[in-house]
Amino acid sequence: MNVSGALVIGIGASSGVTATAVTEALSALDGRFPGDPVAVRAVATIDRAAESGQLRAGLRKHSRHWSLAVEGELPVLCYSAEALAGTIVPNPSASVGQRVGTPSVAEAACLRAATELGEGPARMVLHKFVTAGVTLAAASSAGSPRALRPVVPGRVLRRLR
């Protein structure tokens, strides 16, 4: 598999989102990439969303449909609101900014993570869209993929279990 072509999926969810809503939203994302299974390098989100058992359950269930670009468990990169707020995105939202402290979760998280995992700036592959209370976006890394650094300021690394 061409790891450099793998996507970083950015995800944001309203509080109270269900695992079913997450899997439905991820299926909608897959539908925007017809053909082979979607190749995924990592999932990225805001730190407080990563604590949602429903979000993690939906990701666990749906990730079986993806072609993982990494060995082992899918990495979930969790960023603080402050770290995400410093990322320039194509579609910021003032209402999201008021609620969570950053004008973007899905787009900012995937762009930040894809930049971290590649050489140079990332590019947005799929602008944010919302379905069933879940916001999704996708970015890809520029250049050759880099190893995932265990410690990055403003980020926590989790594995999808």
Results as ranks from 00 to 15, higher is better:
82 E>Y: 10
53 G>A: 12
16 G>C: 09
7 L>D: 02
23 T>V: 08
75 P>Y: 09
141 S>W: 01
106 A>E: 02
20 T>K: 15
129 F>R: 02
127 H>R: 13
24 E>P: 00
141 S>V: 12
128 K>W: 02
126 L>M: 11
56 R>S: 05
20 T>W: 06
115 T>V: 11
52 S>W: 06
55 L>R: 02
159 R>D: 07
69 A>G: 01
21 A>L: 04
34 P>K: 10
90 P>I: 10
119 E>K: 15
54 Q>C: 10
97 G>E: 12
21 A>I: 02
129 F>S: 00
116 E>W: 11
107 E>D: 12
3 V>R: 15
104 S>C: 12
81 A>N: 10
51 E>H: 09
75 P>W: 07
120 G>Q: 14
52 S>F: 06
150 P>T: 04
136 L>T: 02
99 R>Y: 07
7 L>W: 06
59 L>Y: 08
50 A>K: 02
75 P>Q: 08
34 P>S: 12
94 A>R: 15
91 N>L: 12
46 I>E: 00
19 A>K: 02
65 H>R: 14
2 N>I: 08
11 I>E: 01
84 L>P: 08
15 S>H: 10
116 E>A: 15
147 A>F: 05
117 L>F: 12
157 L>P: 03
154 G>T: 10
25 A>T: 01
51 E>M: 04
102 T>P: 09
58 G>A: 05
141 S>K: 04
17 V>Y: 08
102 T>H: 11
131 T>I: 10
124 M>Q: 14
39 A>P: 07
38 V>F: 03
8 V>D: 07
146 R>P: 04
134 V>E: 00
30 D>W: 00
156 V>I: 12
102 T>G: 14
